[in-house]
């Protein structure tokens, strides 16, 4: 395979991503002060998920990689989610 499609990402794109990440960090800190009860964990995790998606797609170049790599990443995340889910089948219903 040739290495012809080496996509060069401009600096400013990385900078914008960083700004988005930092903004979301502050938003998730701010979320703590709003009383959401049990949903505050959910809120924090949603922010973390968006942030990690940004890191995966842009910083880790998944956007420019071959699709099978993206499929693998999604697959691994789903496997982990399934592990967590099945473990909870025990703890949630115990």
């Amino acid at each position: 395979m040739e290495k012809e499609k080496h996509h060069i990402v401009p600096y400013r794109v990385y900078f914008y991503i960083l700004l988005a990440l930092i903004t979301m960090t502050f938003m998730s800190i701010g979320l703590v002060h709003i009383n959401l009860g049990g949903y505050s964990v959910l809120g924090a995790l949603i922010f973390s998920t968006i942030k990690s998606t940004l890191v995966l797609t842009w910083f880790m170049h998944l956007k420019f990689d071959e699709p099978f790599l993206r499929i693998m990443v999604v697959f691994v995340i789903l496997v982990f989610a399934a592990l967590l889910f099945i473990t909870y089948l025990d703890y949630f219903f115990r």
Binding site: I29, L31, V41, L45, K51, V55
Partner: peptide, 10 residues
């Protein structure tokens, strides 16, 4: 990114 909210933001 996951450690921070799970430990510091409870």
């Amino acid at each position: 990114i996951f450690l921070f909210p799970l430990f510091y933001l409870i």
